[in-house]
């Protein structure tokens, strides 16, 4: 599903963001990526999304080597990976429905498929009654649900969530986590970068801890740990 072999990333200014990272994530797993700021978490997500190329090593997504894709191939990789960010990244002047259906328009899905699928995912994230709202009329938690709906509407193999609860109050954050669990239960692999200690400790999922660009801990039913 997702495999990294001896992946290193050294930036032009000499900063070593990742060194010799080996990681294998199987289909249907739920993985927390934790670690202090500057540990290499963001670099890891950027490499998986082919926003950057690794200096060394190999990255394989769904049995395809992606660390040296041509620019024209990158969009097709990203269609297999749903993404959610701390800042939601929605189109402000599009309705909830338009934001979600856009991901399907990009892959030129048939109109009938869009009309069928969009209400399904909005139902799944609990926004069936807000389809015609603009993001600005929604709360932070609701906006993140829109982002989640958009990320999964094309049924990606992997959902990459970069601090999806970072801007939300604890109660709302748990709402998002329940949606993520539902998505995971339907077979989507989830990689979630987070600082939310209470969530990681409570959920008891696989935890991969990064520090100084290395994997320092990889536990199947782990906790957040002591590192900040």
């Amino acid at each position: 599903m997702l495999e990294l072999y001896a992946v290193s990333k050294i930036y032009g200014n000499g900063v070593v963001a990742l060194r010799d990272v080996d990681l294998k994530v199987n289909k249907g797993e739920f993985v927390f990526i934790v670690g202090p700021s500057g540990a290499g978490k963001t670099t890891l997500t950027r490499l998986i999304l082919a926003e950057e190329k690794p200096t060394k090593g190999q990255i394989i997504v769904n049995n395809k080597v992606v660390n040296n894709l041509r620019p024209s191939e990158i969009p097709y990789l990203r269609r297999q990976i749903g993404t959610v960010f701390q800042d939601f990244r929605l189109m402000h002047n599009w309705t909830v429905e338009e934001n979600v259906s856009f991901a399907m328009k990009v892959i030129e899905a048939p109109r009938r498929a869009i009309r069928k699928r969009v209400p399904e995912v909005l139902e799944m994230v609990g926004l069936a009654n807000k389809a015609k709202h603009l993001p600005t009329q929604l709360s932070g938690g609701e906006q993140q649900r829109v982002a989640l709906a958009r990320a999964i509407v094309n049924q990606p193999y992997i959902l990459l969530a970069d601090e999806p609860t970072g801007n939300l109050d604890p109660e709302t954050a748990w709402g998002i986590m329940r949606v993520l669990q539902d998505i995971n239960a339907q077979g989507t692999t989830i990689l979630m970068v987070t600082h939310a200690k209470n969530i990681v400790d409570e959920m008891r999922k696989r935890v991969v801890a990064l520090e100084g660009g290395r994997i320092v801990r990889d536990e199947t039913r782990g906790a957040y740990g002591n590192e900040n």
């Binding site: 969009p75 269609r79 993404t83 990244r89 991901a103 990009v106 958009r150 094309n154």
Partner: peptide, 16 residues
């Protein structure tokens, strides 16, 4: 440019 980067994240091709 923000919208363009969102489009790229959902897998839009450059021509799209």
């Amino acid at each position: 440019r923000r919208e363009i980067s969102i489009m790229k994240y959902v897998g839009a091709t450059d021509w799209f």
